[in-house]
């Protein structure tokens, strides 16, 4: 073998090793707001890695996907705040080091240790929150009417409302309208919630997912979205400032999403760095204004990075009031979940 051949082989081997090192990839199972390049690229550039993100809808779908995957396929999971315990019970999440998470800077109500921690061990950290409340077109409806939930779905606005197609927040709103706290929803209180849902349904022109609800509001097909919020109208604020949202006098439902490292991750250190990036002020500002949907960052330090216009759209200065007047999503156990879903499907098919 000539020296030239040896050098060529050696060079090729070094290139292959280098390429393998550069090809380090992080796989994250996420909601659509994490697919924005403006959020992901800075992390990829800083760590010289590729982040592969896959969107999912519904915790059940995510857990099923994880169960069907090989150990190590996924590194990071974004999950509904009320469902963290399901992932922990299934042994899917790894402990997170508390001392490396900036939760001291978080809005206190959003730390949610009772959701993200089990037996003193932290498995996830809240990264974003917002409200399922009432979105509306301020030029088409009387804003004062939007302060009373029962007026929103009264005959006055029949055929002018769309209902967000997710049973937990909408049933939460129905419960709040009847004075039932979302945390107190049980099988018996479904008797109270059922008639409210029926009234809502009879007034609604449609029951729509995120894109369909946005389209319906933006095109004037409906004037109100029950279950909407900043996540629905913020991306439309620039072009259609008349599309807005409010927290009614009775209150509204608060949604949160958490992020964690999967227990089977083969690169837990890199996954942890990603989590730390997402909850850092810079990552939080980018996540809050993601192209898919906007929402409040859990970390209040992001307020130093967001500009005034962005904070205005997010209603930054009203958060203290909003947090005090809203309640977390209903978090039913498995049996109650079945009953709630059956009631929801029954109502939809009316």
């Amino acid at each position: 073998m000539t020296k030239r051949t040896v050098a060529l082989l050696g060079g090729t081997a070094m290139w292959l090793v280098g390429a393998a090192a550069n090809a380090q990839e992080l796989n994250a199972l996420v909601w659509c707001d994490h697919t924005d390049d403006a959020l992901i690229k800075p992390f990829e550039e800083e760590f010289g890695v590729t982040v592969n993100v896959r969107e999912y809808e519904g915790t059940g779908a995510a857990l099923a996907l994880l169960e069907q995957s090989r150990p190590g396929d996924w590194d990071v999971l974004v999950i509904d705040g009320i469902d963290v315990f399901r992932a922990v019970e299934s042994g899917l999440l790894a402990p997170l080091p508390d001392d490396q998470l900036p939760t001291a800077d978080f809005f206190p109500e959003i730390v949610m240790a009772e959701n993200n921690t089990l037996d003193g061990v932290t498995y996830a950290v809240t990264e974003k929150f917002g409200y399922n409340t009432i979105s509306y077109n301020s030029e088409k409806v009387d804003p004062a009417d939007m302060q009373d939930l029962s007026t929103v779905w009264s005959d006055k606005y029949a055929e002018r409302i769309s209902i967000y197609d997710y049973y937990l927040p909408v049933m939460g709103l129905a419960a709040i309208a009847e004075g039932v706290a979302t945390a107190d929803i049980d099988a018996k209180s479904l008797d109270t919630i059922g008639p409210v849902l029926s009234q809502m349904r009879s007034s609604a022109a449609s029951v729509a997912g995120v894109v369909a609800a946005q389209t319906a509001l933006a095109t004037g097909e409906v004037d109100i979205v029950v279950g909407g919020g900043e996540w629905l109208t913020a991306v439309l604020a620039e072009e259609q400032p008349e599309l807005t949202w409010t927290i009614p006098d009775q209150g509204a439902v608060r949604w949160t999403q958490s992020i964690g490292v999967l227990a089977d991750s083969e690169q837990p250190d890199l996954a942890l760095e990603f989590v730390k990036y997402i909850v850092s002020p810079e990552g939080q500002a980018r996540l809050a204004t993601s192209a898919c949907f906007w929402g409040m960052p859990a970390n209040s330090a992001a307020g130093e990075i967001l500009n005034d216009d962005q904070k205005s759209v997010l209603r930054w200065d009203d958060q203290t009031d909003y947090l005090a007047r809203t309640q977390l999503y209903p978090a039913p156990d498995a049996d109650l979940d079945v009953e709630m879903q059956d009631l929801w499907l029954d109502t939809l098919s009316q």
Partner: peptide
């Protein structure tokens, strides 16, 4: 649509 609802949150396969 009913099938999708069973899968989305509860994973009732």
């Amino acid at each position: 649509q009913v099938i999708m609802v069973q899968l989305g949150r509860r994973a009732d396969f």
